[in-house]
Amino acid sequence: MEFSTIWLFVVAAAALLIIPGPAVLYIMARSIEQGRQAGLVSVLGVSLGGAVHVLAGAVGISAILMTSATAFTVVKYLGAAYLIYLGCKTLFSASDNKASEIAQAPQKKWLKILCESALVEVMNPKTALFFLAFFPQFILPSAGSVSGQFLLLGAIFITLAFVSDSLYALLAASIRKRMNVSAKLQNRVTGYVYIVLGVFSAFASPAKT
Score class of each variant (00 low, 15 high):
Val189Gln: 12
Gly79Met: 03
Ala204Tyr: 11
Ala183Asn: 07
Ile32His: 06
Ser142Gln: 09
Pro22Met: 08
Val193Ala: 05
Pro22Trp: 02
Val54Met: 03
Tyr192Phe: 15
Ala128Arg: 11
Gln149Ser: 07
Val120Ile: 03
Val24Lys: 09
Ala103Asn: 11
Ile156Pro: 01
Leu160Lys: 00
Val74Phe: 07
Ala12Pro: 08
Ala155Leu: 12
Ile113Gln: 07
His53Leu: 06
Ala128Gln: 05
Ser174Lys: 15
Ala155Met: 10
Val122Cys: 08
Val46Cys: 03
Pro20Gln: 07
Phe138Ser: 00
Pro20Ala: 04
Ile18Ser: 05
Gly154Leu: 00
Ala80Tyr: 01
Phe203Val: 09
Lys76Thr: 10
Leu40Cys: 02
Leu140Thr: 15
Lys89Gln: 14
Gln104Met: 14
Ile6Asn: 09
Ala71Thr: 13
Ser31Pro: 11
Leu119Ala: 14
Leu151Tyr: 02
Tyr85Lys: 05
Ala202Leu: 07
Ser93Leu: 15
Lys108Arg: 14
Leu44Thr: 04
Val46Ser: 06
Gly21Lys: 06
Leu17Trp: 01
Ala51Thr: 11
Phe134Ser: 04
Phe134Thr: 00
Ala56His: 12
Ala99Cys: 10
Leu151Thr: 06
Tyr168Pro: 00
Asp165Thr: 08
Phe3Cys: 14
Ala128Glu: 03
Val59Thr: 06
Asn180Cys: 13
Ser47His: 11
Ala81Gln: 05
Leu83Gln: 02
Leu197Cys: 10
Arg178Cys: 11
Ser145Lys: 06
Val196Trp: 04
Ala81Met: 05
Arg178His: 09
Ile102Phe: 14
Ile6His: 11
Leu160Ser: 00
Gly60Met: 01
Thr159Met: 06
Ala128Ile: 07
Phe9Trp: 02
Leu129Ala: 10
Leu129Glu: 01
Thr5His: 14
Asp96His: 10
Gly87Asp: 01
Met28Arg: 10
Ala69Met: 10
Val59Tyr: 13
Ser62Glu: 08
Thr70Cys: 13
Ile84Gly: 07
Leu65Pro: 05
Ile6Thr: 09
Ile158Ala: 04
Leu197Tyr: 02
Ala13Ser: 10
Ala81Ser: 06
Leu40Asn: 05
Ile113Ser: 07
Arg36Phe: 13
Ser205Trp: 09
Leu129Pro: 00
Arg36His: 12
Glu101Leu: 13
Ile61Asp: 14
Lys208Tyr: 14
Ser201Arg: 15
Ala99Asn: 11
Asn180Ser: 10
Gly45Tyr: 09
Val41Asn: 05
Gly148Pro: 01
Leu44Lys: 10
Glu33Ala: 15
Gly87Lys: 03
Val196Leu: 06
Leu91Cys: 09
Gly144Asp: 05
Asp96Thr: 08
Gln104Pro: 15
Leu40Phe: 10
Gly198Met: 06
Leu40Met: 04
Thr90Arg: 08
Asn180Thr: 13
Gln137Leu: 03
Gly39Ser: 00
Phe203Arg: 13
Met28Ser: 05
Lys112Glu: 11
Ile195Asn: 09
Tyr194Asp: 07
Ile61His: 11
Val146Ser: 04
Ile32Ser: 06
Ala13Gly: 02
Tyr82Met: 04
Leu111Lys: 14
Ser117Trp: 04
Lys108Gly: 12
Ile19Leu: 07
Phe150His: 11
Thr127Pro: 11
Thr73Glu: 12
Arg30Thr: 11
Phe3Ala: 12
